[in-house]
């Protein structure tokens, strides 16, 4: 008998088949897995200031990361129990679909295609963004109409490419996208002068202008927004329980701002006379039980990262280097879009 090289490989394969033929865990199992491993696995960006980026001490900071922290605090009682998985824009959905991460909190736009056909569900909106353009000031371009025929640098794997096309078609103009597979390459090309404009969500443009440019005044962000970009965390399909938890943790943070509950006063407000506050913080009624959590789930989340307004100010707003205005991300009571369904 001559040797058959494949047989070893095939035996291994057969072994693997036998070992793993059991279907992967689906419905309702994420919470159990999170509890069992004692950590929330959170997909974040590879580095976008204000949303998810590593600071000089090696800690992940930003709005998207705070959502994960709040989640870990609510579910596991410890905001530190998060495993960060940085993902680039093209590869962000696969790990979620495959169950490698529990939540994708990575400045990702909620669209119908993604919601309906890519095996995921968006839980809530944490930032209302829009797509804009950045140009070099010396090009003297002051509005989008002047970009007729211009070459525009884009990063692939985003909704940006499609918006760009839609907008220019609607305006009857032609744009020449120059598409790069990595964020770094697209930035490099724009700053070397390869393109006349760079396009992505305006919050990211602000972050780029603030962090990546020697002199921010050399670049201008054009006033027009060409799209709606609601950003928020997404979870895998088929686990309604976990979906509800992520959704309501985000809403709890928004509700906390509306009710005036902050990181600092949450403890004292536990004995508040306001029943809504009591319900939120688990002073009296146990709302957490309905989610499969305990009474103080929201209290812990707020204690860990503060309410939505505090998170915004710390990462993107007045207390951050980006100094972005609240704009649409203001509470609905103050003319914005942030609105949490009632917690009751």
């Amino acid at each position: 008998m001559k040797l058959s090289p494949l047989r070893c490989a095939l035996l291994v394969l057969a072994g693997a088949a036998a070992g793993f033929a059991a279907p992967a865990a689906h419905a309702g199992k994420t919470l159990d897995a999170v509890r069992q491993h004692g950590r929330v696995v959170c997909g974040v960006s590879t580095g976008l200031p204000g949303f998810s980026a590593v600071d000089s001490k090696g800690n992940w900071v930003g709005l998207d990361t705070d959502v994960c922290r709040a989640l870990a605090a609510a579910v596991l009682g410890d905001a530190g129990k998060v495993k960060w998985t940085p993902l680039n824009s093209q590869q962000r959905f696969t790990p979620l679909q495959a169950g490698e991460i529990d939540v994708l909190s990575r400045n990702t736009t909620w669209t119908l295609t993604r919601d309906a056909s890519m095996g995921l569900h968006f839980a809530a909106v944490t930032y209302y963004d829009g797509q804009g353009f950045m140009v070099a000031k010396k090009s003297k371009v002051t509005n989008v109409k002047q970009l007729k025929g211009a070459e525009i640098c884009v990063q692939s794997g985003t909704t940006t490419e499609k918006n760009l096309t839609d907008y220019f078609r609607a305006q009857g103009m032609k744009a020449k996208p120059v598409v790069f597979e990595s964020y770094e390459a697209s930035l490099k090309a724009f700053f070397s002068g390869r393109c006349q404009a760079y396009t992505t969500d305006v919050s990211s443009l602000a972050a780029i202008r603030d962090k990546e440019v020697k002199n921010p005044d050399d670049y201008a962000i054009l006033p027009e927004l060409i799209s709606k970009e609601p950003l928020g965390p997404a979870v895998r399909r088929g686990d309604d329980e976990w979906f509800a938890i992520v959704k309501w943790v985000v809403y709890a943070l928004i509700e906390a701002e509306e009710l005036g509950v902050t990181q600092a006063n949450a403890e004292s407000l536990k004995r508040s006379a306001n029943p809504a506050v009591q319900r939120l913080l688990g002073g009296a009624e146990d709302m957490g039980r309905l989610l499969g959590l305990d009474k103080e789930w929201a209290y812990r989340a707020i204690r860990a990262v503060g309410n939505y307004g505090e998170i915004f100010d710390r990462n993107l707003g007045a207390n951050s280097p980006l100094k972005l205005p609240r704009g649409s991300n203001q509470l609905w009571t103050k003319g914005g879009l942030m609105y949490a369904p009632p917690i009751r």
Binding site: Q90, M118, S156, G157, V179, F180, E181, S182, A185
Partner: peptide, 20 residues
Amino acid sequence: VVVGYPDLVSVANTTLNQTG
């Protein structure tokens, strides 16, 4: 694909991202 030339791989990559 690394220098942004829209060859077959680049188009496939974009399509993959748009449609999943």
